[in-house]
Amino acid sequence: MIQYSDEAKHSFIQYLQTEKNYSSLTVEHYIHDLDHFFEFLSREGVKHINETDDLLARGYLVSLHEHSYSRASVSRKISSLKTFFTYLNRENPEFVNPMSYIIHPKKEGRLPHFFYENEMEQLFLACSGEDPLSKRNKALLELLYASGIRVAECTGIQMKDLDLTIGTVLIKGKGSKERYVPFGHFAGDALNDYIKHARGNMMKKEEHSYLFVNHRGAPLTSRGVRHILSKLIEKTSLNHSIHPHMLRHTFATHMLNSGADLRTVQELLGHAHLSSTQLYTHVTKEHLKNTYQSFHPRA
């Protein structure tokens, strides 16, 4: 496989972390995308990065489409490579960026999946119980639904970030941007119950300040959250799969359906651009349309 030096890789990671201010998860994705591209170059017989040209770049895109990568995945890989080659060009102005003329594919017009209110009730019933894990699961589900935060943001919450008195949590979002997010009394009660009657027992010999922990007492990971939610869905009569982002979609959709303005939802979600939040207006319009067709006698 074609290699770029460990020094170059390390300096690029430093650039992403310090100058671009990207999160560790984003940096991990960028490096994974970069390694994937270099595997392609090796298959093409390329031995040095300077041999990469726009023809190879386009060939890589063709290979992604041939392997049925989604438009979102292709777009992310293009972003990763553009950032990398722009960085190389900055360090060496004589280097020609082979990705400069590559255009991002248009986004797919799929609407985000979300839960209806009665479906959320089933999920909450699925995590009822007096054992520590049930209390943890209920607090986790309540907070994700109440705040619309990303799973990575949720697993990164420290005990000091939580204010149960006024019902807010300090969230460290993408690009290390911080925002305070409110939550209601349902989430507040569940969190208080979990902290008082479950977290201490689950911690065992572990010593850290992360809010959510796994059954061994270690900090809960994003993969752990996905596992918990999958197990909860199995306990319900819901016949579709669940991914953590669905709770974020559900939060935004329910807020807009209940009359919240777009700017407020944008701020709560931590979206840098309003266009990201506007996607949910299509969901609410679709919901209104379906409701109209279901109940109006002359629809």
Results as ranks from 00 to 15, higher is better:
Gly129Ala: 05
Gln158Phe: 05
Ser176Lys: 13
Ile171Asn: 01
Met159Gln: 13
Leu143Met: 13
Tyr180Val: 13
Gly167Val: 10
Thr155His: 07
Asp163Tyr: 10
Ala152Gln: 12
Leu162Phe: 01
Lys160Asn: 14
Leu125Asp: 11
Leu141Arg: 08
Val181Gln: 01
Arg150Asn: 11
Asp161Arg: 09
Ile166Ala: 05
Leu123Gly: 06
Val181Glu: 01
Glu119Cys: 02
Gln158Pro: 02
Ala139Ser: 11
Ser128Ile: 01
Ala139Lys: 06
Ser147Met: 11
Glu117Ser: 00
Tyr145Thr: 12
Gly175Arg: 00
Leu164Gln: 07
Ala152Tyr: 07
Cys154Tyr: 06
Ala146Tyr: 09
Thr168His: 06
Gly148Asp: 07
Lys160Ile: 02
Leu125Asn: 09
Phe115Pro: 02
Leu141Asn: 06
Arg179His: 03
Ser134Ala: 15
Leu170Gly: 06
Met120Gln: 02
Tyr145Ala: 14
Val151Lys: 13
Leu123Ser: 08
Met120Lys: 06
Pro132Thr: 10
Glu153Trp: 10
Asp161Pro: 13
Tyr116Lys: 11
Ile157Gln: 12
Ala146Thr: 12
Gln158Leu: 09
Asn137Lys: 06
Gly148Ala: 05
Lys135Leu: 15
Gln122Glu: 14
Met120Glu: 04
Asp163Arg: 03
Asn118Ile: 07
Lys177Asn: 06
Gly129Thr: 01
Ala146Phe: 02
Glu153Ser: 07
Asp131Val: 00
Ser134Leu: 09
Lys174Thr: 04
Ile171Phe: 07
Ala139Asn: 03
Phe115His: 04
